[in-house]
Computed example of a mutant assay.
Amino acid sequence: MTLLDVQRLSKRFGAVSAVDNVSFDVARTEMLAIIGPNGAGKSTCFNMIGGQIEPDMGTVLFDGTDITRDTPQKLFRSGIGRTFQIAAVFQSMNVREVLQTALLSRDGRTASFLFPARRYKGEEADELAASVGLQDFLNTECRALSYGDLKRVELALALANRPRLLLMDEPTAGMAPDGRQQMMRLVRSLADKSGISVLFTEHDMDVVFNHADRILVLNKGQVLALDTPDEIRADPAVQAVYLGEEA
Rank of each mutant, 00 (worst) to 15 (best):
R119G: 00
I215M: 09
A15H: 12
M168T: 05
M31Q: 13
Q85K: 05
R118A: 13
D20R: 13
D206M: 06
V217R: 05
D204M: 11
V22T: 07
T29V: 14
N161M: 11
L190C: 02
A129H: 03
N210I: 02
E154W: 03
D169H: 09
D192F: 02
A130M: 11
M48S: 04
F115P: 00
G14N: 05
H203C: 11
Y147W: 12
P177S: 04
V208K: 04
A15R: 14
A225I: 09
F113Q: 13
M48F: 04
R106V: 12
L134W: 10
P37K: 00
Q91R: 14
R143K: 15
A40W: 01
G174F: 12
G174P: 05
Q100I: 00
R118L: 04
Q135W: 10
Q85Y: 09
G58D: 07
V187R: 11
M1W: 06
S10W: 01
G148P: 02
F137K: 15
G64R: 03
A130I: 03
A176T: 13
L216K: 08
T172A: 15
A225Q: 08
T83H: 07
L199N: 04
S197Y: 01
R180Q: 15
E231K: 14
G174E: 09
T110W: 07
D235G: 04
S189L: 02
H211C: 00
I80A: 14
H211S: 04
E202V: 08
D136A: 14
G244Q: 08
S10R: 06
A18H: 01
L186M: 13
V187H: 11
D63W: 03
N210S: 15
A130P: 00
E246M: 10
N21M: 03
E154G: 08
V187N: 10
D213W: 02
V198S: 06
V6S: 11
V89S: 09
R82L: 12
G14V: 07
D235T: 02
E30P: 09
F90S: 02
F24G: 11
M183K: 03
R12L: 12
A158E: 00
L145P: 13
L166D: 01
L165S: 12
